[in-house]
Nucleic acid binder design. Structure first.
Length: 955
RNA sequence: GGGCCAUUAGCUCAGUCGGUUAGAGCGCGCCCCUGAUAAGGGCGAGGUGCGUGGUUCGACUCCACGAUGGCCCA
């Protein structure tokens, strides 16, 4: 007889093979059709809110891995908080304006912005940005990210732009923006100023030149200088083209300088650098004739070698004596430190370059029209003619490059708009101290940056962006901007279907409040400002344009979560804008995550060709595996990427999935409402399992609370592999398969399995968002009273009462004994005395506490030992069902056929040998009693009894 | 060059307050099972705790210097 039909071998619709790439889109659709975002919100009405404010990714191309990580971490946090009972509105956003879009329009549409009118250009930019918003929105949804995707915030929307202009007006009204001539990073190819965070450093080869400037009043400072002798100060620079902008020479006040004779001439250089300079500039034998400290040389004046103008000596903190001559060429229009020195010493600030980097007439007819850094040769020629060039070589050094076109940038003095950081620094630092930072060193990081940050250049010479709402009086050139003007422009933007386009459509008169006159000269004729705001200002006011503007959100946000490059960018710009508006910090907690590196530990970049697209992983393994990978490592440290790691994560996924599948399978004939067993009636084994689950809940909860997301993976996976698969579920198989369906032991086990399953599924939902939903829908078939989606469930709470500490401690020892039994079984297997553990007989020789523990456990009344209620309640008049002893608890625990306990002395001894008796055809245990039942001679008594009962029930 | 951070098994991580023989899962090797089966189980081998000094009765843990790597800045 085939006894398989008498076993509880169940099946589930939860497949072993996930086939995630193909099936995940069905869940995306299902969530959308059921508007799960809204339903989840509805389920949390009235609950405390937890708001994560989305830092807007730039809508420019397919999602890359970093953006996927960022959004998924946010999704995990939001889903976790929701399950914990918070109401978490999530409004995703996009950064849609600025140079990258303009460059993309140029590239993708083959358009040149100078060949079309500004409104056409802006229209193309809008079109392209919206295209990428749609693309990325679909990609985020595909990754399982939940949010209000139908109502995202876009920086190009009239509502956003209006709030941004309003914010600018408030900040201007508070006197915190100013317009000034200042050197800024300038990319003449992109024709725009660049912010500090828009330049990247790369190695560049530059000329290395030594130039002599004749001193005009050296005799007043150096008594040793013979009358009539020529004295010169020697400078070193790597940018010859900035020589035309030279208006001074800076020394270190504390350093010692020497006047050194070389042939007939005398050279002024730092004493410590004399030898190196003499060698580099071919001065030959040098003799130091007089020493002076830098601070005693103020008043000394040099003569510009190319122009008839002075170049006075100044002092600066930035002068260091590690290279060069100790005398620093100072071109205030071409360097920030030079600019600071110029302001202090009243040096002239000139910048003889136009927007395209070409020398203007101010640089002289020999250079006019030439592109600055391509004119180095001409400058060197001029210097040679003037007898001022002592040496020219080459040097490789780190030099700033444009983040967009990756070519070297220049410093150029232009009229720019700045936020006055100096006035905001102290309050900003106070806000940083008030906020929480994760990891905690983020606070020190951003504080250091904020302390050192110069005034923030917020203007850009472009058109795809929000205009700076300012006007210039045509009569007296006075610049006019204030809250009233900004609010008037704001209203016009809000009233226009394409928002800020109105600025470019209308004249200054139409844009200004009627009757505006110049407060300086009373004039009434104005031109409008031509600059737009930096994209960093766009996103920097998102808390004002979004958090404060959406009723369902609020200020400040509970959490900002971005890549740790944002300590320098969005975290800071958001803080500056808030502080400038007089607001507290827009965040209570700031979380920073690291970036990806390849298997060798070097960062991913397009140029290295080691980029992995999130779509690749999603299409090969599924979004859930991608999401699981993001919790595989600690996101606060660099995250390694390699095929081997993906395989490992995919393996881990399968283990978790199969564990869920086993639980679901063995619950198919379980109705939680009617079959559940109260905890106090459950078997110790099952209570132990629930105790372990409770500990897991506690660990995973702590992990999420402390942002140790990787602990989710490690704890969950270890629990599935160790506590469940290799022990609990394995031990349970005999009961689950061979007991009568509603035997108390089996129902006790199923009660535990049901509770474990639910807890695992809910705890997996933030990360394994698709798989948890799939499993949840299976759970709902067993218990239809459950919420529609796992996302509406409640996070489990640890329940230590299911298993007291004493029980757990006894089990700890039992597990150690079990390990010893396994070793003995392995040895017997190797020795050939036992083929497989289930056919073994184990003898334990124990003493003291162990003996007591084993006997106590052995004596525990196993519910299987008593006839099942249905069996005993069976009215069948025939022979009473024979008692069906379960395997006593110890064989069950060790998964062997027979166990004998003997009293001994000393350490526990374990022996394994082949069990005597025949193998039961149904439960596969080897027992001497097999054959004793006349009706079923190939079964053990307990199986015979069960089969008899089943036959009676079936008839 | 400066700031912040990291470094524990092939991989990813644990390790309380400084205290026995440094743990887990995966992977790997050998074996078992075929009633979780494109599954499941057992055993085993893997560590100079980045290096060098120092503090201490005692250091993976604290300190200093250095190496390597990451982010940011110059």
């Amino acid at each position: 007889m085939d006894y398989r039909t008498t076993l509880n071998l169940l099946q589930t619709e939860f497949p072993m093979r996930a086939n995630l790439p193909a099936r995940e889109p069905d869940f995306v659709r299902w969530w959308e059709e059921n508007d799960i975002y809204a339903q989840v919100r509805q389920a949390r009405v009235g609950a405390p809110r937890w708001i994560l404010h989305d830092g807007p990714p730039y809508a420019n191309g397919n999602l890359h891995l970093g953006q996927a990580l960022n959004k998924i971490l946010k999704d995990i946090a939001i889903k976790y908080k929701t399950l914990r009972g918070y109401d978490c509105p999530y409004v995703p956003g996009w950064d849609t304006q600025g140079l990258p879009t303009e460059l993309a329009v140029q590239r993708e549409y083959g358009l040149n912005r100078h060949q079309v009118d500004v409104l056409t250009w802006r229209g193309k930019c809008r079109e392209l940005a919206l295209k990428y918003v749609d693309l990325q929105r679909e990609q985020f949804k595909r990754l399982g990210v939940r949010g209000d995707w139908e109502h995202p915030y876009l920086t190009l929307s009239p509502q956003y732009q209006a709030r941004q202009v309003e914010a600018f007006g408030k900040i201007a009204e508070r006197g915190l923006v100013y317009r000034a001539l200042r050197p800024v990073y300038w990319c003449y190819r992109c024709e725009t100023a660049l912010a500090e965070d828009e330049v990247e450093y790369a190695t560049k080869s530059s000329p290395s030149i030594y130039v002599a400037f004749d001193l005009t009043n050296a005799h007043d400072f150096f008594s040793s200088l013979p009358a009539g002798a020529r004295a010169r100060v020697l400078i070193w620079t790597t940018t010859p083209w900035t020589i035309p902008g030279n208006t001074g020479i800076t020394l270190s006040g504390g350093a010692t300088y020497v006047l050194a004779r070389s042939g007939e001439d005398y050279y002024l250089v730092a004493e410590d650098l004399l030898a190196a300079t003499a060698a580099a500039a071919h001065l030959g034998e040098c003799e130091s004739v007089e020493r002076k400290r830098g601070m005693d040389l103020v008043g000394l004046v040099a003569q510009h070698p190319l122009y008839d103008r002075p170049s006075p000596i100044a002092l600066g903190e930035h002068v260091v004596l590690d290279q060069g001559t100790g005398a620093v060429h100072t071109a205030p229009g071409h360097g920030l430190e030079d600019y600071e020195v110029a302001r202090e010493y009243g040096l002239e600030i000139i910048s003889p370059l136009d927007d395209y980097g070409r020398f203007t007439a101010e640089a002289g007819s020999a250079l006019e029209g030439q592109v600055c850094d391509q004119a180095n040769e001409q400058v060197l020629e001029l210097l040679t003619c003037a007898g001022a060039l002592l040496e020219r070589g080459e040097i490789d050094h780190e030099y700033p490059h444009c983040w967009r076109c990756h070519l070297p940038v220049i410093y150029r003095a232009t009229k720019q708009w700045f936020m006055d950081i100096e006035k905001l620094r102290t309050p900003a630092l106070a806000e940083i101290a008030r906020a929480d930072w994760m990891p905690s060193w983020g606070e020190a990081r951003i504080s250091g940056m904020v302390e050192a940050r110069p005034d923030w250049c917020i203007s850009r010479q472009r058109t795809w962006g929000v205009p700076i709402p300012a006007f210039h009086c045509t009569a007296c050139e006075q610049t006019l901007t204030n809250e009233t003007i900004a609010n008037h422009v704001r209203d016009l933007i809000l009233a226009h279907p394409r928002g800020a386009d109105v600025w470019f459509e209308k004249s200054a008169e139409e844009l200004l409040p009627p009757g505006t006159v110049c407060p300086e000269c009373g004039g009434s004729s104005f031109t409008k400002e031509g600059d737009i705001m930096s994209v960093w200002f766009d996103s920097g006011v998102s808390h004002y344009a979004v958090l404060r503007a959406h009723e369902e959100l609020g200020y400040p946000a509970d959490c900002y979560l971005e890549g740790d490059d944002q300590y320098q960018c969005w975290f800071q710009t958001s803080l500056w804008c808030a502080t400038a508006l007089g607001d507290p910090a827009p965040f209570r907690l700031v979380v920073g995550h690291a970036f990806f590196v390849d298997e060798t530990g070097t960062k991913m970049s397009k140029s290295k060709g080691n980029i992995i697209a999130p779509q690749e992983i999603q299409d090969k393994y599924g979004a859930d595996v991608l999401r699981l990978w993001f919790t595989y490592a600690d996101f606060r440290r660099k995250m390694f990427c390699s095929e081997a790691i993906f395989e490992q994560v995919a393996d881990a996924y399968r283990r978790i999935r199969n564990t869920l599948r086993f639980l679901l399978t063995n619950l198919q004939d379980f109705d939680p409402a009617t079959d559940s067993v109260p905890v106090e009636e459950m078997r110790a084994l099952d209570r132990w399992a629930l105790g372990q689950t409770s500990a897991l809940v506690e660990r995973v909860t702590h992990g999420f609370d402390d942002w140790d997301l990787h602990l989710f993976y490690h704890h969950l996976h270890a629990f599935c592999a160790r506590e469940l698969s290799s022990f609990y579920l394995d031990v349970l198989k005999d009961t689950l398969y061979t007991d009568l369906p509603d035997a108390p032991a089996r129902r006790s086990a199923q009660t535990a399995l049901w509770q474990i399953l639910q807890r695992l599924v809910i705890m997996s939902a933030p990360v394994l968002t698709f798989t948890a939903e799939e499993a949840w829908q299976q759970c709902r078939r067993l218990d239809p009273s459950q919420p529609l989606s796992v996302q509406m469930a409640d996070w489990p709470v640890p329940d230590p009462t299911v298993a007291d500490a004493e029980l757990m401690a006894r089990w700890d020892r039992l597990m150690v004994i079990r390990e010893q039994v396994m070793v003995a079984l392995e040895e017997a297997k190797q020795a050939g005395t036992v083929k497989k553990p289930l056919e073994a007989h184990v003898t334990l020789t124990a003493a003291g506490a162990d003996l007591e523990l084993l006997r106590e456990y052995e004596a525990e009344l196993s519910p299987s030992a008593s006839p099942s209620p249905s069996a005993s309640a069976s009215p069948s008049p025939g022979p009473a069902p024979s008692p069906s002893p379960s395997p006593s608890p110890l064989p069950e625990l060790f998964i062997v056929s027979q166990v004998r306990i003997e009293e001994g002395a000393g350490e526990l001894q374990v022996q394994a040998q082949a069990a005597e008796g025949e193998k039961c055809a149904r439960c596969w245990m080897v027992l001497p009693e097999v054959g004793s039942d006349q009706e079923y001679p190939d079964l053990c008594p307990r199986c015979a009894g069960r089969v008899r009962t089943l036959v009676e029930l079936g008839s």
